[in-house]
Design a protein around this nucleic acid. Structure first.
Length: 498
RNA sequence: GGCGAGUUGGCGGAGUGGUUACGCAGCGGAUUGCAAAUCCGUGUACAGGAGUUCGAUUCUCCUACUCGCCUCCA
């Protein structure tokens, strides 16, 4: 069996991964707070941990991996957004607005992440559906002397857990010396954090032994991972900015509530998405949503989900990455190259692609702490070596399956199809584009025929420019004209191509 | 201020105590009405300093710089 090695934030070293139970490998990843479209920073961990999920499924079997990613649907930011909507004239009650807002945001999230080629996790629990478990866990923590109630709040007593700060490599005393902690009169120690807090009458709230209130942010992950994965599981993932305080607090809660277990074995953290060297974040306002990019509302024009995904895969997950123009350009070019590779045997070859074993070299690269860039290099170099050679359907199936392991299912996208038709034409076969594309092709061919005689190529250039502006690549040779829809082609412009 | 991560050629990104992955971009050429695609050829790097060593980009220490966390954050 392939040995997977992963960088464990807990030990700050690359370690061999061994699941607690190979029959059920368990992973928990912190999901989004649902009040707004997901931005690129939210998308990166989705792609990173999707690759890990696929790798685990490959190594341990599809039915032997459980992946949980939560939705935080109770949070002060959600409340604030709902209040703003109310002030803007929304007549519904705060709770009604919140329910509608979180439902809609979850739908958006699903649509956007699906477009990035991410598999849905096994479970996507909403925090509000696990309040009972959270209350029970808080009660347990109080009973064990790790938490205390004060003025309607319940706080975790960080001094009761000697390992507090171990994950992020800091001590309680150092942090207090840093002096940027919130002091509240009801806290025993400034570092103590909230497990439960009171809600006003109109705010979302649940009855509890400490009065009507709502959970603090961190307890949901502890309660839901315990409920769905048990007291000990294999992998816990998230962005590096969650390492402190969120993950530190999760560890404190879970390990104190279930001292017999060890909570998460491996901690994986992805680095941040940057914009011009600075972290992309909502508080800085320098973010793009996935939706912005996919609709062309960005400096890079319209990007398909696959282009965005590939751009992420070109960087190692533990390095910061900047979605610069250069990177996007690179990503687009590589995507076309990959599609072209898959299309080498024409449309017939495309139909013959089946599920095969992925390349060993690709599995090995991924097993080495998710070296996605290395895995891509392995695929590309093999494709390159076959150019001009005779390739087999088996080989392309291997390539295709390897790409799918990276979440790049390029078999059925338009670019691959168009490139396959171009291949067919080279081989003297007549392929069929969609009607609008076929029409554009004939128009271009006729203009070109006329221009060859008149030596006036202005009309040809005009048509070419229009097609290029619509993300269609024009390839002309003595043997004919090929039109290739690029991966970022917008199907909605199909009606009026030229 | 405290803590952590990092610094490899124009860019992305591997790796090794001694022979400079890989890709993209660039440049030259073929091809093309011009392009695109494709093919052929080609240059450039290991932040700085000190140490260990026969020899360091690779080990140790120091410095500089970058980024992150310490406040909601993927």
């Amino acid at each position: 069996m392939t040995e997977i090695r992963l960088h464990n934030s807990r030990t700050r070293r690359k370690e061999a991964f061994a699941p607690l139970d190979a029959e059920n490998v368990r992973m928990y990843v912190c999901g989004p707070t649902v009040y707004d479209r997901a931005h690129l920073g939210n998308a990166r961990p989705v792609v990173v941990f999707d690759v890990l999920y696929r790798l685990l499924r490959h190594v341990y079997g599809e039915d032997h991996v459980t992946y949980v990613r939560n939705f935080t649907d109770v949070d002060d930011k959600i409340n604030a957004r709902a209040r703003a909507m109310q002030e803007a004239g929304d007549a519904r009650s705060l709770n009604e607005i919140i329910r509608a807002l979180t439902d809609e945001t979850i739908d958006w999230y699903h649509a956007d992440m699906d477009a990035l080629g991410a598999l849905r996790p096994s479970h996507e629990p909403r925090a509000t559906e696990f309040i009972v478990q959270m209350v029970a866990m808080i009660e347990g923590l109080i009973a064990k002397g790790h938490a205390y109630a004060a003025e309607g709040h319940v706080l975790f007593d960080v001094r009761s857990y000697p390992n507090y700060g171990k994950l992020s490599g800091r001590s309680v005393d150092d942090m207090i010396a840093g002096a940027r902690v919130e002091v509240a009169p009801y806290k025993r120690d400034p570092m103590d954090f909230v497990l439960w807090k009171p809600s006003s009458a109109e705010e979302p709230g649940w009855d509890s032994p400490w009065g009507r209130g709502r959970p603090g942010w961190h307890i949901e992950c502890s309660a839901m991972s315990h409920e769905l994965l048990g007291p000990a599981f294999d992998i816990h993932g998230g962005g590096i900015d969650l390492q402190f305080p969120h993950h530190e607090n999760e560890i404190a809660q879970s390990c104190c509530a279930h001292p017999e277990a060890d909570f998460a074995n491996f901690w994986l953290h992805n680095e941040m998405v940057q914009v011009e060297g600075k972290k992309m974040s909502k508080s800085l306002g320098n973010f793009f949503t996935v939706r912005d990019l996919m609709t062309g509302n960005s400096p890079h024009g319209r990007l398909s989900g696959m282009t965005i995904r590939l751009a992420f895969l070109l960087s190692h997950y533990r390095s910061p990455t900047d979605l610069s123009g250069r990177k996007v350009k690179n990503s687009r070019a590589i995507l076309m190259e990959l599609c072209s590779g898959l299309a080498q045997l024409g449309t017939k070859g495309l139909k013959e692609l089946r599920l095969a074993d992925p390349l060993d070299a690709v599995v090995e690269k991924l097993a080495d702490d998710l070296d996605t860039a290395g895995a891509l290099a392995e695929i590309r170099i093999r494709l390159k070596h076959t150019l001009g050679q005779s390739v087999t359907s088996d080989f392309l199936s291997t390539i295709s399956t390897s790409l799918q392991l990276l979440g790049l299912d390029l078999r059925s996208i338009d670019s691959t199809y168009d490139l396959a038709i171009a291949r067919d034409r080279e081989n003297g076969l007549v392929g069929k584009y969609p009607e609008a594309l076929e029409l554009a092709k004939h128009t271009l061919e006729n203009a070109r025929k006329a221009a060859k005689i008149s030596r006036d190529f202005r009309e040809v250039d005009r048509i070419k420019a229009i097609l290029a502006s619509k993300d269609i690549e024009v390839r002309m040779s003595n043997s004919g004209v090929d039109l290739i829809r690029t991966p970022d082609f917008d199907p909605s412009v199909m009606d009026c191509l030229i």
